[in-house]
Amino acid sequence: MGPKDAKILIIDDEAEVRDSITLLFKSQSFKNTQAAKDAKTGLEKMQQEDFDLVIVDLMMPVVSGHHVLKEMKRLKTKTGVIVYSAIGLPEVFGQDLSKSYKGLVFLSKTVTPSVLVEHVKDALHKPAYTL
């Protein structure tokens, strides 16, 4: 299986962010992309099937992306993770996440699309992106 066949899950509460990432990835030949509108749906999808990479937002209503990270860590999943949020820092509701998730990539939504795509390519074969 080549990197272009990788299964990628996008978790973001904004429909347009999910659709835009999906189209961006498709334009880069990553065609096996799924999306979830909140943390709960994302975790359900992860229970149903295996993904190679999860791209998750942090600030989401009701349940934050931090919950997804906690669950993935608890389940010792080998799935790669990129946190893609507006703030772009290891911080959610004033809580510092850098100690709990050392080395995890926190990307800001201001990074250019090519930077996001480069991280996706790296994440698919580098263990540094796993929790």
């Binding site: 189209l23 334009s27 507006a86 699309p113 996001l116």
Partner: peptide, 23 residues
């Protein structure tokens, strides 16, 4: 900041996707 960043990211990603000619 959040409210400005998100639409900007959407604009950038869609421009990039449209220019790829793959859609």
């Amino acid at each position: 900041g959040h409210e400005l960043k998100t639409p900007l990211a959407v604009v950038e990603m869609n421009l990039s996707a449209l220019f790829s000619g793959q859609l």
